[in-house]
Structure formats: structure tokens, C-alpha cells
């Protein structure tokens, strides 16, 4: 009954772990490892956002009739995350640890308060609203 919540929550945690590795590599000024870890982290994060924006949110909006509320806030925060990821990538290219770590801290807090809203409310409600169709929708999300 919690297919979407379980999968997406686990993916949040995986993103967090990759984030922590990239952050640690920058703090240690190991720039090559940092770039590798950062790209791995950014790649999974962006794919996760796509899963939501292209599949989950449209389904959620269609089932609940809420197209002007929570998903608007979620999409806006996604855009803010993308902007921070771009800024972190630029800082990495400049080898600017202070700039990277400042953006990383900002990204972390923005993302965690965002994830709480999804994990505690939006995902469980999506599973509930989708009912028996949740596995099919999750399958479509995983294809991205």
C-alpha cells in the first residue's frame, strides 16, 4: 500500500548519501573525486525530480483535483534546487570550496524541508489516491 512512498523515500536517502560524499570530497579538497561524486548525486537528484514532475504530480493533480496547491509549491522548490545545483557545479569548476559548501548547505536545508513535506504528506496521499494503480504509476516513474 505504500509503494510510491517507500520507493521515493528510499531515493531521497540515497540522494542524501551521495550529497554527503560530494560535500566531504570538497571539504577535503579532493577535486577529482568531488566532481565524480557531485555528478552522480546531481544525476540521481534530477532524475528524481523528473519522476515527480512528469509522472507523479500530474497523476496526483488528476486524482485529487488539486492543481493549484501543494504541487505548485513543490515545483517551485524543485526549480530552486536546480538553480542551486547549477551554482554548485560552477563553484566546483572554479575550485571554490567556500562557494560550493555555502550553496551545499543551502541546498541541504531547502531539500530536507521539501522532502519532509513529500514523505509525510504527499507520497502517502498519492499512494492512497492511486490505490491499486500505484504500482503501475511507480513503474512509469522508474522508467525515467
Amino acid at each position: 500500500m505504500a509503494e510510491i512512498a517507500d520507493f521515493m523515500t528510499a531515493e531521497h536517502r540515497r540522494c542524501d548519501e551521495l550529497f554527503a560524499e560530494a560535500e566531504a570530497a570538497v571539504a577535503a579538497a579532493d577535486w577529482e573525486a568531488a566532481e565524480e561524486r557531485f555528478e552522480e548525486f546531481a544525476d540521481l537528484t534530477l532524475r528524481h525530480l523528473e519522476r515527480e514532475e512528469r509522472v507523479l504530480f500530474p497523476e496526483f493533480e488528476a486524482r485529487t483535483g488539486m492543481s493549484d496547491g501543494p504541487t505548485v509549491v513543490m515545483r517551485r522548490e524543485h526549480d530552486q534546487m536546480r538553480a542551486l545545483l547549477a551554482s554548485m557545479r560552477e563553484a566546483l569548476a572554479r575550485r571554490d570550496d567556500d562557494g560550493f559548501l555555502g550553496d551545499a548547505e543551502t541546498f541541504m536545508i531547502l531539500t530536507q524541508q521539501h522532502d519532509m513535506k513529500e514523505e509525510q504528506v504527499l507520497y502517502p496521499m498519492s499512494d492512497e489516491a492511486l490505490g491499486a494503480e500505484a504500482p503501475t504509476v511507480l513503474g512509469r516513474m522508474r522508467e525515467l
Binding site: R63, T64, M66, G69, P70, V73, M74, K117, V121, L122, M125, E128, A129
Partner: peptide
């Protein structure tokens, strides 16, 4: 669905 009115971030 029930409780959806609460979900207003």
C-alpha cells in the same frame, strides 16, 4: 480524498 484540504503548503 480525505484530508486533502490540509495539504496546503
Amino acid at each position: 480524498i480525505p484530508g486533502a484540504d490540509r495539504l496546503r503548503f
